[in-house]
Design a protein around this nucleic acid. Structure first.
Lengths: 149, 149
DNA sequence: TAAATATAGCATCTTGGCAGTCCTGTTTCA
DNA sequence: TGAAACAGGACTGCCAAGATGCTATATTTA
């Protein structure tokens, strides 16, 4: 259904929480309790974001997490990529070795056009930042994206 | 990974083929052979598009399919919805009774913002038409969509 | 120094949906 | 009447998402 995974949803919540906390260290438990997110899952997500360098971790008692990237530079596209892997609208935009490639044997009539839609989608997701998600209550900036070919 | 399903890929190909064929009736077999799409899967897809009213079917020998909607009015959003069900970036935008709802027990810090992103995404997909996919070789119309909050 | 807290890094298990196949029926043309 | 082509399903295998658990490591605090 063209849907983000739950892990990504949890990640959005966690990262926005951290954005609000500023430079304060916040434990996974605190975040989980604040929003009713299952703690073990949230920890999985935060561990992954730590490995990708999007958050810093502080171990031990009084430990927790801090954003490692300014919310204004932390894009939705980056977040999705960190959790789910890079966005690929269709298989043929995915150059990964182990990706299940397009199996068409004939010429693909939509290859070029779809590629453009895909690029626009990534531009779109790359233009949404965590700051937008966390603080964005600008009633309605921006307009409907123009279309492509 | 925020990816369209293969069925949707097949649907895009089929619909673009029909768009090129104009008012001529084209059989599923012809489409399948033209692009190397597995026939049984293509038939599943076309049957569904027929039920949703996006294509007309002609039964019997010499039968096949014709577009029921002008390519300029047939949006990518509509196609995805026909095949996969409506696009919902996150669960909380899905009002369906049987949808697995957001299970947050606490206040959701990103609800409103994500909703806006979701709306923009649908606007974006709703602005891409089959005509764009089938005939669109306008080298690069449109620009990167503005962002929202 | 011991206990408590919290993250790190795996491994494992379950489940749902996608992808693919098959079968039976109906319609139309030659 | 037979072949071609769509209609409408039921069914299965497989994989990724979702979820859980365990052990190790680091840090604070009493």
């Amino acid at each position: 259904m063209l849907t983000l995974t739950r892990k990504t949803e949890y990640a959005m919540i966690a990262v926005c929480h951290l954005a609000h906390a500023g430079h304060k260290v916040v434990s996974a438990r605190d975040i989980a309790e604040a929003h009713g997110v299952p703690l073990p899952l949230l920890m999985n997500v935060l561990k992954r974001l730590n490995r990708t360098g999007h958050v810093h971790s502080v171990r031990g008692a009084k430990g927790g997490y801090v954003l490692a990237v300014p919310p204004e530079q932390f894009t939705l596209d980056g977040l999705i990529e960190a959790i789910e892997g890079p966005v690929h609208l269709v298989r043929c935009t995915n150059p990964a070795k182990n990706a299940r490639r397009c199996t068409l044997t004939g010429p693909c009539p939509v290859r070029g056009s779809v590629r453009k839609v895909h690029d626009r989608l990534r531009d779109f997701l790359g233009a949404v930042t965590i700051a937008d998600l966390a603080f964005g209550d600008r009633p309605d900036a921006g307009e409907t994206p123009k279309v492509i070919a």
